[in-house]
Amino acid sequence: MTPEASSTGTPDAGPSRSPRRVNRTDLIAGAASAVLGVAVLPAAVGMPRIAQGMPGPGLFPGIIGVFLVLFGLVLVVGALRGRRVDVEEEAPAVAGPTVSTGRRWLNGGVVLAGIAFYIVAAETLGFLVTITLVVLAVMITLGARWWVALITAVAVAFALLLVFEEGLLVQLPDGLVG
């Protein structure tokens, strides 16, 4: 969802003080909650019972599912009626230049991809190499100079190795190179 999209909606709805708009964020959040609830319910009903028809493992997930649907629908209805649920209180910060939307998504994507990369590659490449690559990638994406990033990445990798393997006695993956 883009910020531009969230500002669209019915521009005028009666004589209220502020123009009412469909709150897109609330609409999506409410719908997601309701869908999750609907998905949980059949699983909860399908769970075995303790004895003589007494509910057991499925009881709590069932109750949670019902509430997820209920709260989700209330949020959806509120969003469609254009009620402003939240009051913005944040004061504008002392800001420098702003960052483009595409760049922001890339930044977030690299952070997630970095963590995912560690999960799949650490066992083969070993802790030192993998974590160095992750820190390097995140720093360069966020605008650090490449040599600063390289020095920091290597230093962080060795510092963490020292703290966790020597200090806390955690066996970090050695990999094929270590």
Partner: peptide, 10 residues
């Protein structure tokens, strides 16, 4: 941010 990511993973 990069250091926080690394500490979180380890």
């Amino acid at each position: 941010l990069a250091i926080i990511v690394a500490i979180s993973i380890v």
